[in-house]
Design a protein around this nucleic acid. Structure first.
Lengths: 394, 394
DNA sequence: GGGGCGAGCAGGCACGATTCTGCATGAGCG
DNA sequence: CGCTCATGCAGAATCGTGCCTGCTCGCCCC
């Protein structure tokens, strides 16, 4: 079917002859059946079909649908109506190619294994991703989940996606993809301070020092004399900052530090480290575990040593898991509020993409939330009143 | 011409003048600065720059990088080297426009509120999405998280993304986006049987009848005489199939059905329904809850009525949450194995996209997994042996 | 020695939309 | 009455890549 036949079928007479001459270098011989061939070869209606059916030019259709030009309302309505009738959907690929904006935001998290997400931070990641997705969708963007770019995948997915920006959770020291993206002019916002001189556009992180100090103060107020720490051997900023804050607090409080470090991505090592910590001659009477599974592991270790929680041992760990609401006893957790982080990261990133807001780089520090439960409240010996439970705000 | 000569030719700057004039309409007088203007306007190197630097044509560059044409290895290597040196990254948008394949797969879940995910199925969704992401990345695709298309978003994100296919979790009866996608020739695979005559390309679902029958058999073997059901008022296939299987099992077993239905997306109504079920005059001695929070709610209701679990009441619920490993007592759960579902859905979808595998439509039924814990094992009065725990295979 | 042949590679159209430029027309004003 | 300006819209360049077409050699064989 030729364009002329389509035009005939559209109902409008020969008012618009849709120039039979091709664009620039038309047919040298006669080998081209038509300048534009069958317009809707794969079944989808294109902008040309809408223009032909509405009896206007392509420009008018584009302007009418995007609200761009200066058109009378009658034309605008007419074009929209015809487009609707034909079921016209603009090609996202063509729009992206022309405008340079895809409406897509990459989301990636640095991993240690082969899975795309780390399991230890799973609850954190899930909530952060949920909030980020919501925030992005509310501003017209969609999130693309991408693998950590350590060893490039069989088909490098990264270069096959047109991204307007990227969110990196827990960026590693010398992430090659991040530096290349930034060099390409694509904004990158990280959740967590970038380790080295990684040139991110902005970053968001919790106030880890403040969180640890407040947490240790809380334990001390509950009667702790010697507070231990379960920390990691890796050099990421979360571990480093938290450990440093602990050491500084100990120095201020005049307490000798009591801590055990283990490779945080090894789920088995955590249980061993928890056991070691409680087996020490200078056994602490309160413990803070930096990682999600520490609460369960410490609770099990305490049972093995016959320690009651919270009577003999106060317990706090950093986790987003709801498991600690129902353990026996419920365990106090430090929540990093991943939802707020995810939302903030997306707002900063889209601001950078659209060139609004303060000049970059921006670094934003977010507060944490201590969810106090039974495990960190030493019951007063005289009262049998149930321990107060602070309801979470969210 | 040898590769060395080509390399020589690459040094001659006169080959490509790279017009110093601005892009299109810089000067009104001499309005045509050159046929292609400045080659790399935004800083990125294009395929033309690689061709010029390597002293070959664009076709040769494209063929060399994609392994398509018939080129000697020397040329191929030379082009790759030049491309690497210039930091050339092919434009994903242009490739998508030209080839019609974006390498992107949409992922959406039908929701009831404003959030992009339902919270009641949160653990299910998280695990399913994780597995789907892994599977897609392994085959060179990336996942895009998209909102449920009930009321179209402010800027309809769906039409702004070029998708090769879509995964729909829990499709609703007359999902308009699904039918439009299928009409456009884009494959759609659903997790969960499509409700009405929704024309999905394929679907994957659990064998809900078999799961419910096995689960009720297990409860009966543990000594249950009257098994109750906590079900939903909504008409989705999961609820419908599970309830029907329950009724059929009761008929076969000669037991009167005892069930309460409530709106499953209302978290408060679940607790009320659990309470109602245990307050009935024909109170069941075992309960199966179809939804994730039912276990916690039933446990709380049982405590209120002074019922011990499992001595007075056997409990099972369908959930992926790890919370039920640590409740007091641990609660037996029916796992739908969302990881396996997510992987299968992606395999079917990519097979459909790439046109391999059996002819569509395909429907695949997957087994479930009953994780037996203390709550469904009535301890034998003579023995004090600890209840056996069946380790999960994954 | 010339014609067929096949390897190697250049030219150029096409994908489908955005948008810049410019023409035609009617209204306003000196 | 003529000039200017605002308005409404058509034409065409362009985004960057893939691939189809065809040209040019060098080689082999009759």
């Amino acid at each position: 079917m030729t364009a002329a036949e389509k035009h005939q079928a559209s109902g409008t007479p020969a008012a618009r002859p849709t120039a039979p001459a091709g664009p620039a270098g038309a047919a040298p011989g006669e080998r081209c059946p038509g300048p534009r061939g069958g317009s809707t070869r794969r079944g989808r209606a294109g902008i040309r079909d809408v223009a032909a059916a509405a009896g206007v030019s392509i420009t008018t259709v584009s302007d009418a649908l995007n609200g761009k030009g200066r058109l009378p309302d009658a034309t605008r309505r007419h074009v929209r109506e015809v487009a609707e009738r034909l079921g016209y959907r603009p090609s996202a690929a063509a729009r992206t190619l022309r405008t340079g904006k895809s409406g897509l935001i990459g989301l990636t998290v640095t991993t240690y294994g082969e899975e795309p997400f780390t399991f230890t931070e799973f609850a954190y990641f899930a909530e952060m991703a949920r909030a980020a997705t919501s925030a992005a969708l509310a501003r017209g963007y969609a999130l693309v989940i991408l693998p950590a770019p350590a060893r490039h995948s069989p088909f490098d997915v990264w270069s096959n996606v047109a991204l307007d920006g990227t969110v990196v959770i827990d960026p590693s020291d010398q992430d090659p993809v991040v530096s290349e993206l930034v060099r390409s002019g694509i904004p990158v916002v990280s959740d967590g301070r970038p380790s080295g001189a990684l040139p991110v556009t902005a970053w968001v992180d919790n106030d880890h020092e403040e969180a640890v100090h407040a947490l240790l103060d809380h334990l001390a107020e509950s009667g702790a004399r010697r507070i231990g720490l379960l920390t990691g051997t890796s050099t990421d900023t979360y571990t480093r900052l938290s450990t440093r804050a602990y050491l500084r607090w100990c120095e201020n409080a005049g307490q000798d530090p009591v801590y055990e470090a283990y490779p945080a991505h090894d789920p088995c090592a955590g249980a061993v480290a928890a056991d070691r910590l409680l087996a020490r001659p200078d056994r602490p009477d309160a413990v803070y575990g930096l990682f999600d599974p520490n609460g369960t592991d410490l609770l099990a270790a305490a049972r093995r040593y016959g320690l009651r929680v919270p009577e003999d041992l106060l317990l706090v760990c950093c986790s987003e898991s709801t498991v600690y609401e129902t353990t026996e006893p419920p365990i106090t957790t430090l929540s990093l509020k991943p939802g707020r982080i995810g939302n903030t990261v997306i707002q900063l990133l889209i601001d950078a993409i659209e060139g609004i807001g303060p000049p970059r780089p921006v670094q934003q520090v977010m507060p944490t939330d201590l969810l106090v439960r039974t495990s960190s409240l030493r019951p007063s010996p005289r009262t049998t009143v149930a321990a107060p439970r602070r309801p979470g705000p969210g």
